[in-house]
Simulated scan of single mutants.
Amino acid sequence: MNPMDHRLHLDRTLDELDPPRWAPPAADSTRLIRKVHELRRVPLRALVPADLRTLVSQQVALPYVLPLAVRLLIEEPLLDAYFYEGDLLLATVNAPAAAWTLLPELGVRLRDVIEALPETAIADLPRGATDEIACFAARIESLR
């Protein structure tokens, strides 16, 4: 992809990149549903880590959102996006296997970053995180 295409891509929204555009949420929608609808109208470059965690957790437009999340995680694997240290990482490794089949190289890069973390860093994550990370690594290995 040439640099100009990349810049144009980041200036676009999920509503533009992941059709069809979503209709406005119902008046009685939860705060989370309203937030996800709102985030689909934000240019990709303006999404902050908490936004990415929300979108990944809700499995929204993963082919566009996962690369952004992984880019951040490569730089700071245990980034505290909103709730706790490592929350973006755990949301990302819990993305469905089908999303990673579309992005196998990205999954390998994330797995390599995770494997480079000290065991104590993984141990400090919430209960069950070690198993979630192990499942992710196994899924990525099965794609090879």
Rank of each mutant, 00 (worst) to 15 (best):
P20K: 12
L110A: 03
R31Q: 14
R41N: 12
A27H: 14
P118T: 00
R31A: 15
P19H: 14
R31C: 02
H37L: 01
P19E: 12
L102Q: 15
K35F: 09
L68I: 11
V36Y: 02
L110I: 03
R40A: 04
L106M: 13
L39H: 03
L14S: 06
T101L: 09
L17N: 08
A91M: 13
V36N: 00
V36S: 02
V113Y: 03
A46I: 04
N94R: 15
D28K: 14
V113K: 13
N94P: 00
E105C: 04
R34P: 01
W100E: 06
A50L: 11
A98G: 03
H37C: 10
V56L: 06
R53W: 11
L102W: 05
L66W: 07
R45M: 06
L78P: 05
S29G: 12
L90S: 05
R12V: 01
L52I: 14
L72D: 04
A98Y: 02
A91P: 10
L47H: 09
R34Q: 11
D87N: 06
D80K: 15
T13K: 08
P67S: 13
A46S: 15
A46R: 15
V56E: 03
E16Q: 15
L47Y: 08
P67Q: 13
P118E: 11
G86F: 05
R40H: 06
A46L: 15
R71V: 00
A97Y: 07
V56S: 04
T101Q: 15
Q58G: 00
Y84N: 07
V70Y: 12
L44I: 01
L68V: 08
L17A: 08
L14T: 02
S29E: 13
E85G: 00
L88P: 06
G107E: 09
P24C: 04
W100D: 08
R12Q: 14
N94W: 00
